[in-house]
């Protein structure tokens, strides 16, 4: 982060603190005003998000509980009351010190956070966090594989570009790329916003499902990775690769499919990937 960026953030923070204080004081007079609650939430959200972006991680962590309380108020799980506003104003007063890295020898911040957590515990009971099953390690692709993919019906309208995908796959060593035109309808039935073409190609040994998933990160597509003819590796679909934690497509993934035996794939691909009609 440059000094300029830090200065921009500090200037923005001054405005946000003024807005936050005004919002909290107005809530004392109008505790049921949801527009005020939303404004306080947005201010907190921006302080947290921008603070984290510019390296003020202690600030972002401190604001998290503060923001969560107002999110609960937004959802109706908590009501604005005198104690919440007292804690919120006290929390707001700690923000400049957190930005400047000032210590907290008296434990004021910890006491405020404990108070905010107690507020939440007194509201709606928090559901236990879902236990996520560990992602099984993917088998390394130590043999050539065959990739088939087809864009979803809305992918082009959402801005996906198949030529970028094909370029990235060529970068992984894709060869023998062929287009499947079997689903291209007569011209008068053609959906100009859809993509009726699918693609199939060979990928060299060493390219695994995680790399393919990376290629399709911003493309709403069905893809299928299977062993090249003569190999005996499992089939991997788009569901098999672990997602990137910080970026990704907005497509909601269907339930994970277990890797099917290679023989099943060789018996015949899904109807969407008919092997007829390929052209170079």
């Amino acid at each position: 982060m440059t000094d300029d960026m830090a200065a921009i953030f500090r200037e923005e923070l001054r405005d946000l603190l003024e807005s936050l204080e005004r919002g909290l004081l107005d809530l004392k007079k109008r505790p049921g005003d949801m527009a005020l609650v939303n404004q306080v939430f947005r201010d907190l959200h921006t302080v947290k998000g921008s603070g984290a972006m510019f390296g003020f991680t202690d600030l972002a962590a401190f604001i998290h509980e503060f923001e969560t309380v107002f999110d609960r108020i937004r959802s109706g799980a908590l009501a604005v009351g005198a104690e919440i506003l007292r804690l919120a104003l006290a929390a707001k007063d700690e923000i400049p010190g957190l930005v400047e890295g000032e210590p907290d020898p008296d434990g004021r911040r910890a006491a405020i956070l404990a108070g905010l957590k107690a507020m939440m515990a007194g509201g709606e009971v928090e559901a236990p966090a879902a236990v996520t099953a560990p992602v099984a390690a993917l088998p390394a692709a130590d043999a050539p594989s065959r990739l088939r993919f087809r864009l979803s019906g809305a992918a082009l309208a959402m801005g996906a570009r198949p030529e970028i995908v094909l370029d990235e796959l060529r970068g992984l060593g894709a060869a023998g790329i062929v287009a499947d035109l079997s689903d291209v309808p007569p011209l008068h039935w053609l959906d100009v916003e859809g993509c009726a073409i699918g693609w199939e190609m060979d990928l060299p040994a060493g390219v695994d499902a995680a790399q393919v998933e990376e290629v399709f990160m911003f493309v709403d597509a069905d893809w299928r990775l299977e062993p090249a003819a003569g190999t005996d590796a499992p089939v991997l679909t788009e569901d098999a690769a672990p997602p990137d934690a910080d970026t990704g497509p907005v497509a909601s993934a269907p339930p994970a499919a277990a890797a099917a035996p290679a023989r099943e794939a060789r018996q015949g691909p899904r109807s969407a990937f008919r092997p007829n009609g390929w052209m170079r």
Binding site: K48, A60, A154, A160, F218, D246, T247, P249, V250, A251
Partner: peptide
Amino acid sequence: TDSAEDLKAQAREAGALGWMVKPF
């Protein structure tokens, strides 16, 4: 700042191509 699946599903429904979590 949120990577919740319901938010991603709503974003997709609205017509977004992808998401990126703050901080980045």
